[in-house]
Design a binder for these strands. Sequence first.
DNA 1: CTGAAAGCGCTTACAG
DNA 2: CTGAAAGCGCTTACAG
Lengths: 340, 340
Amino acid sequence: MYINVKATSFDIAYRAGVSQSTVSRALRNSPLVNEETRLKIQAIAKELNYKVDKNARNLRSQQSNTLALLLFEDPTSDDSQINPFFLSMLGSITRACANKGYDLLVSFQQMDNDWHAEFEDTNKADGIILLGYGDYVAYKEKLVHLHEQGTHFVRWGAEVKDMDVATIGCDNFHGGYQLTEHLIQKGHKQCAFIGTASRRAPEFYDRYKGHAAALKHAGISVDENLQIDALYTEEAGYLASKELLAAGAKFDALFAACDLIAVGAIRALTEHGLAIPDDVAVVGFDDIPMASFVNPPLTTAKQDTMLAGQLLVENLLKLIAGDKPSTLLIESQLIERSSS
Amino acid sequence: MYINVKATSFDIAYRAGVSQSTVSRALRNSPLVNEETRLKIQAIAKELNYKVDKNARNLRSQQSNTLALLLFEDPTSDDSQINPFFLSMLGSITRACANKGYDLLVSFQQMDNDWHAEFEDTNKADGIILLGYGDYVAYKEKLVHLHEQGTHFVRWGAEVKDMDVATIGCDNFHGGYQLTEHLIQKGHKQCAFIGTASRRAPEFYDRYKGHAAALKHAGISVDENLQIDALYTEEAGYLASKELLAAGAKFDALFAACDLIAVGAIRALTEHGLAIPDDVAVVGFDDIPMASFVNPPLTTAKQDTMLAGQLLVENLLKLIAGDKPSTLLIESQLIERSSS
DNA sequence: CTGAAAGCGCTTACAG
DNA sequence: CTGAAAGCGCTTACAG
């Protein structure tokens, strides 16, 4: 095997009998270049298997055509088990980037690391997409910092009230409302809610508010004893449900703040000898692939991850271009299965 | 908000009263620099929130400290549903890269694209990790091409016989052997195999060979009518199982070449009124998160994705450093659940 | 339409 | 231990 010395624009210029500037223009399809010259140059480039050196291009033009995705989860959660919902988002973001001609740098960060701005400061990325169920209280000062640095970023999640941050998120309130409305229509009256309902988990909180609003609208009073905190894991859902059962709470429906929690809840209920949906109806949120395969298949609110990824990328690109991004809410879709 | 003009090494040099070369050395912890000077420079750098421009560094040093991950699936498969097994690999590879101080560029490619060498040719990445259940026949010429170009890459998957390519993979033969041995111990004699058993899907093929070897070892003859091709999706598993049932095949156990296929097979068997494991025992391969939540929970061969990611990254780094990588086989682990 | 030249921000021989 | 200088491979005003 012979060593393949990489061709530069000077090599092409030499062979084409033009200057290197002209080569550079021709390869970028500049209208300034004579068509015949351009074609000739492009042919030689192809022949030499020439590829623009991205480091040189980026250094010179001061932009990287690369976006960075920072996925963070609470440091307490298990490293190896990333929430499937985010993996689905990762897939759609990757695709959206590719469609826009951008590369994607991926990083899983703990909340406590000094990740902010690293990628953009080093010119490795033009902007950042933040993804994760974050602890909002700890998270906020990071956002403020990023914002102050003038870093370009968009985030997925619940809207940040007192801050001007580009956010794309699901309409969690409405999704929560819809699921609970569905449970009520099925004749359930005492509905437990498993999931942290505070600013520490703003998305769950919004789902809870929607849930509570639906109850009120139906004339059912909200029983605070039926809400138990839990973060986004199967284990947390299992433990919280156990706690609820141990406390002897009475309920005929259970709203899990996300599908993973629902999977844990189903396990706890089943172990306790309760039949789903006959004794207790269960609903989740997200519609992760697993949702249709648990027993019984889970009723849930589907989040449109394809659209979400697309909007995140498009808005970040807008922001980088100096335009004002829109804060957008995506509607979830009720998926009825046999758990309710 | 004031505009934060990015500091360069010259700004630091000016403030520290030294040359830019010394700044560069100090920030890289070169032993050539006087400690006092180094500390002073580093303090100033921190104060100015200085970050090395990666494009400049990479251009100059001709390496990127970035690896690229190319995940490809057959063009026929659904875009939105990436096999959970690969997502798990993605997580572990990301972590392994971070541990080594490398960034990770992620790209999902279709097999028919001209992806080969793109990242390395443009100096965006120092090497490439290839991931995917690929159609081996179509795939091979790409590998040959990559190899000829002198691109640094490692791949996950079955060993390529007649080519010197760095490969990390699961011991699929042994995993297949173990699962079938397990089924035989449980008293099953007529075992179907759902999954493509040919060079088009070399990993499945190895699992099949292990399966067949276990049968032979137990004195059971291999019935070719009990093997149906299927690629790595739930749908393919469902359809292949339907086909098997429609043909009136007799079997008391079913070996699915991967968990997703198993999930589809369970659906088909259940619809057909068969009880699992009483009428038919089912086993899968991979141990994706879903495996423990299907009904009934799935017996499978767990692949150690954490170790796999680590080995892929380590071997690629070796290769880049000019060392010979090792072709390694990782043992799978039998996970017994109630589907068998 | 084309070319000569500057410069993006670093790293690294080379000389002292 | 330190500095002056070259150069990585491009893009892009500037001049013609």
